[in-house]
Design a protein around this nucleic acid. Structure first.
Lengths: 125, 125
DNA sequence: GCCATGCATGCCCATAAGAGCATATATTCG
DNA sequence: CGAATATATGCTCTTATGGGCATGCATGGC
């Protein structure tokens, strides 16, 4: 009996796996950008984005799954707002490569060190 | 005749669409992390990562497609190296949300403004 | 109670994924 | 030339995606 039977074939990771996968979809980034300005109801998002309501709800579901948005029930509306924290993982990872395109980084970093503004920074390899 | 016939059904965007999609896959981030330390051949990557060679080649293909790695043919080897530039788009987008988790940002920003370091005075040197 | 409004779900479709495995295409060596 | 090494491709299989569209389920107004 091949163990294969138990192995769940994994295609691409689910969009709900983490922030990386969730924000790979441009519409979801767009939704976050809109919500970043102000809390909004689904309908308000629909009007603002010109997408179909079900699509918006589905995208919001994904964003909720990874913690990028939070909801408040307000009567029959649901007010969505952004929680940027899950993006920190992305930021941390990407920042490691920042020196590859931003030459000013070195100067800024030197400055930060000098002024001791960046307390918990670890530059480990 | 419905125009639908021409519409290409788009499921999830291709991994080769942009950096966002390309790095959503953890193995590809891993590959970039390894290559960030030093240029490497495919076989070297395979040994280092413990992945199957075809998989590695395929991931590299995706990374190449979005410009995140570059290749040099060296005999029968191909030496891959990272090009971080395509990550800038991600960094820019994510950074907009940075204040949502990093309180120190305000201080740093104020500092930069005050010292006028972020002006890029010597950028075109 | 009844209907409208606001959202969430369900279903269908076409597509592309990533892993495993086999194989094709160089290139170097004897 | 033939064998071995280094990579890239091809194929199968299973699965999740995102859009379109219909519908389910609350909540609020009258």
């Amino acid at each position: 009996m091949p163990i294969r039977a138990y192995i769940r074939a994994v295609a691409r990771a689910a969009t709900t796996t983490d922030a990386f996968n969730a924000v790979a979809e441009p519409r979801r980034r767009q939704i976050l950008d809109v919500l970043a300005q102000s809390e909004r109801s689904v309908t308000s998002l629909v009007d603002h984005l010109g997408l179909a309501q079900p699509q918006v709800s589905k995208h919001l579901r994904v964003l909720r799954a990874v913690g990028l948005v939070e909801v408040t029930e307000e009567g029959r509306q649901r007010l969505y707002r952004v929680n940027g924290r899950p993006l920190q993982e992305i930021h941390t990872w990407v920042s490691q490569y920042q020196s590859m395109w931003d030459e000013r980084l070195d100067r800024v970093e030197a400055l930060l060190n000098e002024l001791d503004v960046s307390k918990g920074r670890e530059r480990d390899g």
